[in-house]
């Protein structure tokens, strides 16, 4: 990939190994990367809760012909644009992250909870999750 051209256009990014850390404009970066180099599929989207700074999302791209991986990572607080226009596999990933972490994706029409029931309170995988749904009282009662 042409790194000097990339760093000239998007000047607030850092390169560590095969991982790029950016601050904003996710869709622009992905479209630039796909134009330069044919990455075929988005293997997964990994989300980590970092406390006060927000949630860090990592996109794992892969190219079948050349067998190369690339990681693009960005930290968000509440909302971010969705990549379902480019990769259709991201629909399932984004629903899971909305369910377990509470991040909204703009542009995804089917945004709903994936794993927990529709009226569950709270987002379970956050670090400050308190188990305060009423159904959890069943665990302590005798049968």
């Amino acid at each position: 990939m042409n790194w000097s051209e990339f760093e000239r256009i998007f000047n607030d990014c850092e390169l560590v190994g095969n991982k790029i850390v950016i601050q904003s404009n996710l869709l622009g970066v992905i479209e630039f990367v796909l134009k330069e180099y044919p990455y075929d599929m988005l293997k997964e989207i990994i989300a980590t809760d970092k406390g006060d700074e927000g949630v860090e999302l990592t996109y794992h791209l892969y190219s079948v012909d050349d067998e190369e991986d690339l990681f693009i990572s960005i930290t968000v607080k509440d909302e971010i644009e969705s990549v379902t226009g480019i990769f259709k596999s991201a629909e399932a990933d984004e629903n899971e992250i909305y369910d377990l972490f509470g991040i909204k994706f703009i542009g995804n029409e089917n945004l709903k909870r994936l794993y927990m029931p529709e009226d569950w309170e709270g987002h379970p995988l956050r670090k400050d999750y308190k188990e305060d749904d009423k159904r959890l009282e069943w665990n302590d009662k005798q049968s």
């Binding site: 988005l42 997964e44 079948v64 259709k88 596999s89």
Partner: peptide
């Protein structure tokens, strides 16, 4: 299942 669709759906 076409190959391009399969790669797009991972």
């Amino acid at each position: 299942l076409e190959p391009k669709t399969a790669l797009n759906y991972a």
